[in-house]
Amino acid sequence: MDFKSLKITKTAKEKSGGGADLFTVGVSPHVRDADTTTRIMGWVIIALLPLTVYGVYIGGISAFIVIAMSIIGAVGAEYVMQKLMHRAVTVGDLSALLTGLLLGLTLPPRLPFWMPLIGGIVAIVLGKQVFGGLGHNIFNPALVGRAVIFISWSRLMTTSYLSSPQAAVVQTSAIKSINAVTTATPLQTMHNVRDGQAALSASRYYGPLFLGNPWGCIGEVSALLILLGLGVLLYNGLVDWRIPVSYIGTVVTLSWILGMDPLFSALSGGLLIGACFMATDYVTNPMTWWGKVVFAVGCGIITVVLRFYSNLPEGVMFSILVMNGFTPLIDRYLKPRRFGAKRVVSAA
């Protein structure tokens, strides 16, 4: 009897003696983690909320308009672009909203309303959609938007920090004396200090930088709230701690070597929000943990070089954008060690 040539003469149903209905089939795993893209984006937005609310409180109605316009620009551009390109509209995944919010937080509160709008549009169109949308962009979209505004209207971007009446609540007497000297950002002031144009102690800025700093971008208003936001992200396992730690660590170490107050270098400028919310952007940083460390240390070095040796007071934005460009290269060369490639030390 040649069993291999046996034909199937009865269907499974007839042979089974029961169980007529068929089941859903699919490839394992048959269960999935509950986390989704929308949920991740939502958590980052929640992490940014305290900072946003406080930034609007300090910056006043004009700060609110800046954030609102950049969000409208980003979400609107995403919607229009996807409609024009006949793609599924993915505004609901909150990623455009997050881009708009991040852009708004990195802008000074006194910009004319059309500028963040343009920034938001540029961020989505040039920063994201031209590359193919979410997940395909090389550079952080919010920073692309900001860079374009920064280069196009650099004077407005660096002098729109004038404090609002609400800002007075956080002004201690120490700050008032600084306030008499300048309305520039603390980092700008220290830049001037180095150039011999002013004489101030960095430690006088600690308090306001931590709790309420009216001279800076909307999102630079409080280091404490940025760190709170980072805490939310770390608690939910959404970002790798190595990026902010190695980024800030590099800046602090190098600044200290170059003679700047280390704590001041960490708290001032856009470093904290950049290290916690911009450099940690999934799409534009490397995939392996040591790739992330290389990325973050690179950001730190470039930030310090720009802060100390360029005409710009701050270098966070350009440092992250430059390192974004290196991400594919880092991913190509820093791969995980192959399992079983070499023996490891025995534990037993």
Binding site: A12, K13, K15, S16, G17, G18, G19, L22, F23, T24, V25, G26, V27, S28, P29, H30, V31
Partner: peptide, 15 residues
Amino acid sequence: LMGGPMMGLAQYTDS
């Protein structure tokens, strides 16, 4: 499923 939900095989019939 035959086996667990992570690596198990989905069956189309229970026969």
